Simulated scan of single mutants.
Amino acid sequence: MHPARKQRLILVILLVALSSAAVGFVAYAMRSNMDYFYAPSAFAAGEVPFEKRIRAGGCVVPGSVVRDGSSLDVRFTLTDGAAELEVVFDKILPDLFAEGEAAVITGKLKQDGYVRADQVLAKHDESYTPPEVADTMHNKANCKGGPKI
């Protein structure tokens, strides 16, 4: 092999190795910032890790929203039509949050079986539902935020 060609080959291999290492380090660093989406059915099946930041979504069960009179604490239940998930939230809910509407929460599953949410997202218009909620709600026709069947 010609020496100039050998130098270029070594340079290309070195660049590929360094680029791969950089991508690997970035992916490893982002691992702690990833929020995995789970449906209420996955919670019922025991597939969700405890105390790890997760996302969940579904339809807010009508009649399940209970507000604490002395604090901002709110308890409500999400469903995907197959299972239900209890959520506790201690901040101000979005204006569009309502019973029978689609919602996505971010939080941690506690050992007691409920999710302590630190963020609640509500759908923002009649024609849009977050894709992960739409996939979860494919069989749920009576959720206003879910897809119409």
Rank of each mutant, 00 (worst) to 15 (best):
M1Y: 09
H2N: 14
H2Y: 04
P3L: 12
A4M: 07
A4P: 00
Q7S: 13
I10S: 07
V12L: 15
V12M: 12
L15Q: 09
L15A: 14
A17R: 05
S20Y: 07
A22P: 00
A22N: 01
G24C: 09
F25L: 15
V26C: 02
A27R: 13
A27V: 07
Y28P: 00
A29H: 04
M30I: 04
D35S: 11
F37L: 00
Y38E: 02
P40W: 02
S41Y: 02
A42W: 09
F43V: 05
V48E: 04
V48N: 05
P49T: 01
E51H: 09
R55L: 09
A56F: 09
A56D: 05
V60K: 11
V60C: 07
V61S: 03
G63H: 08
G63P: 08
S64G: 07
V65H: 00
D68M: 02
D68W: 03
V74R: 03
V74Y: 01
F76M: 06
L78E: 07
A83C: 06
E84W: 06
L85I: 01
V88A: 12
V88Y: 15
K91R: 14
K91L: 15
K91F: 10
L93P: 00
L93G: 05
L93H: 02
P94H: 01
P94I: 08
D95N: 10
L96F: 02
F97V: 04
E101N: 14
E101P: 06
A103Y: 02
I105N: 10
G107M: 01
L109W: 10
K110M: 14
Q111D: 07
Q111Y: 12
Y114H: 15
V115H: 13
V115L: 15
H124C: 10
D125I: 07
Y128M: 11
T129K: 06
T129L: 07
P130Y: 09
E132L: 08
V133Q: 04
A134H: 00
A134D: 01
A134P: 00
M137W: 06
K140F: 14
K140C: 12
C143V: 12
P147A: 10
K148P: 00
K148H: 07
